[in-house]
Design a protein around this nucleic acid. Structure first.
Lengths: 135, 135
DNA sequence: ATACTTATTGATAACGAGTCTCATTACGCT
DNA sequence: AGCGTAATGAGACTCGTTATCAATAAGTAT
């Protein structure tokens, strides 16, 4: 039987309180700093449960860290600020059908897809107006 | 000054000889098994160089491992078999413009995007015909 | 061909994210 | 309140990757 503990609630609360992707480690630090004596393993377990239950989205940062974010709605994609992590959910039916089509054209079945757009959000972008884009 | 060593060549050769994404670790094993006394660190360095120089593509597996694959052409995406790793390169101008548009609509600048499609290739798919799809 | 400079190598230590273990705790039911 | 057991948490552990640094060898000059 699934039980409700204050630890799970705490993790859920942190996720719900922000619209940016957070790593398990940083979420753990936040809770610790806030005075909650939660364990790291518990944070990982809670996040995995939330992601598995569809209450959170999970994506990998460029550094290979798993990042989580609250989300109740169905399948969608993300537009993520690579500076502050702020995220906008995107519905893109065109991309869904494109992915399915392109897979079928090459004989692939059971297609899933990873589609995320990274950039600088309006505020982070304007803060860097004088600095030339990297690369 | 950049120097040419047999180690770098060996790594490049392995990449060029296959059309599937490979991990640094497995590439290292392959070379070792083939009798080349190469060091693991060197493999990582060579792969990072190739990826940085545009000679290889890099993506992260679901387990967080970095996978590499030879590629000379410009920007493109991948259709990857999640069983055998076989990969097809995809050009998708529609997705490029979509990503740029969606970013602009939300005030995002310097947009990059991650677009990959995973599935089962024709041969892996037919091998599993009797087994129901997972999930 | 020989000497020399320094980029590259490689064994190994270090690091970091994430998982596993297992004794302890505490949720939810009766 | 009492009980069964899911959940917790400290720490050991795994594993991919990076850093260290002395030894090696590629490319150039002599």
């Amino acid at each position: 039987m699934k039980r409700n503990t204050w630890q799970r609630e705490a993790v859920r609360d942190v996720l719900d309180s922000g619209d940016a992707f957070v790593s398990a480690q940083s979420l753990y630090s936040q809770l610790r700093d806030a005075g909650h004596a939660i364990g790291l393993a518990t944070v990982y377990r809670a996040l995995a449960d939330l992601a598995g239950g569809g209450e959170a989205d999970c994506l990998q940062s460029a550094e290979g860290e798993n990042l989580y974010r609250a989300c109740a709605t169905g399948h969608h994609h993300h537009l993520i600020c690579r500076k502050c992590g702020t995220t906008v959910e995107i519905k893109a039916d065109a991309v869904e059908t494109w992915a399915k089509t392109v897979a079928a054209e090459h004989g692939f079945t059971q297609a899933e897809h990873v589609v995320d757009v990274f950039g600088l959000c309006a505020s982070c972008g304007s803060a860097l107006r004088s600095i030339p884009p990297r690369q």
